[in-house]
Amino acid sequence: MKSPKLNLTEPVCLLNMSNATAISHPGSVEAPEKLRFYVPEEHHPKNGTLLGFWLYLMSDCLIFACLFAMYGVLGRSYAAGPSGADLFDLSLIAVSTSMLLLSSITYGFAMLEMQRKRVNATLLWLGLTGVLGAAFIGLEIYEFAHLIHLGAVPQRSAFLSSFFVLVGTHGLHVVFGLIWLIVLMLQVKKHGFIIENRRRLFCLSMFWHFLDVVWIGVFTFVYLMGVLP
């Protein structure tokens, strides 16, 4: 019922348009006004930010690609020091992974509440996201402190240098995301859902979900593959 109609209308529409151009071009004056094949005014300048932010995320992705490549090359150079199997505690990583995954979904709920224009509910979900993100960072700091206490410092081996740089860079991103989150919560509290705040919340949403995407690579490539015999 539906699909034959679609298949029919589209060619007809195209045919109609091409006929119209062919006939109207030499003849009438008003026809070119109706048929515009260009956008007369500059369109949606507000979305320039979102595209620009996406490009920033992509360049950030390249930074992480370089760090992953470095870890891939050096990750088994232990210099007779401890290996991933000796150091990594997978249950701790499982907990911090679930913290980050949960913070992704709570940020999603905050965005849904923003669509319904409910300030307090949005702030609640954003706050929960912040708490989960802080828990993730807390676990990471605990892990790093534990490693350093064991003598597994970045200077110990190429494996540990690249490990600390890769995981530390991700953690640093999360810390900056948390600072941004707190600033945005204050902004939303003060000014409500003005267009600027909506845009900022959307940018932070992309940033936060992007960090979760990078973390998928980290826990798979560094931790899970690191403990394999």
Partner: peptide, 16 residues
Amino acid sequence: DDGASHSTFKGYMTGF
């Protein structure tokens, strides 16, 4: 539907 408006509860839950 730019902005966040094509995010739905169902979409987020499926992804989660």
